[in-house]
Simulated scan of single mutants.
Amino acid sequence: MRVIRKYANRRLYDTQQSRYVTLEDLRRLIIEEEPFKVEDAKSGEDLTRTILLSIIIEQEQADSEAEVFSNDLLAQLIRVYDMTSPLPLSRYLEQGTQLMLEQQKRLQSQWKQAMRNTPLEFMRELTEENMRFWQKTLNQPGQADESGDAEPHEEDSSDASNDNKPSS
Rank of each mutant, 00 (worst) to 15 (best):
L52Y: 01
L87A: 09
L47S: 01
Q143D: 12
L74F: 07
D46F: 05
D46C: 05
A75N: 12
I4V: 13
L26F: 00
T127Q: 03
N164Y: 11
E128W: 14
E94P: 01
S109G: 08
A8G: 03
V38D: 01
K165M: 05
V68F: 07
E60P: 04
E94I: 15
S158G: 02
S168G: 11
Q76C: 09
E154F: 13
R10Y: 12
A41N: 03
Q61P: 04
T118D: 03
L77S: 01
Q17C: 06
L73G: 02
S43V: 03
R116L: 10
L126E: 03
L120N: 08
D149L: 15
T50Y: 04
I57T: 11
S85V: 14
E33D: 04
Q113C: 10
K105G: 01
V38T: 02
P35I: 08
Q76I: 05
E151L: 15
K105I: 11
E65F: 08
D63W: 00
F122A: 10
E121F: 02
D149I: 12
R19Q: 15
D159A: 12
Y20F: 15
E128A: 12
T118G: 11
T137W: 07
T15I: 11
N71C: 04
V80E: 14
Y13L: 01
I31N: 05
V3C: 05
L52V: 09
R79G: 05
S64A: 06
P35W: 07
N139G: 15
R91Y: 08
T84Q: 09
S167C: 10
E129N: 12
L126H: 14
Q61T: 13
E24I: 14
I51M: 04
T127A: 07
S90V: 14
K6H: 07
D25S: 10
E65R: 15
Y7N: 05
V21L: 00
Q59N: 07
W134Y: 13
P152H: 00
E33I: 13
S43W: 02
D25H: 10
M115H: 04
I55Q: 03
Q113W: 06
K105L: 11
D82E: 14
E33S: 10
Q98E: 10
L52M: 05
M1A: 09
S109L: 14
I4D: 00
S85C: 03
T137V: 06
V3G: 02
R2F: 05
E58H: 07
R27Q: 14
L26W: 00
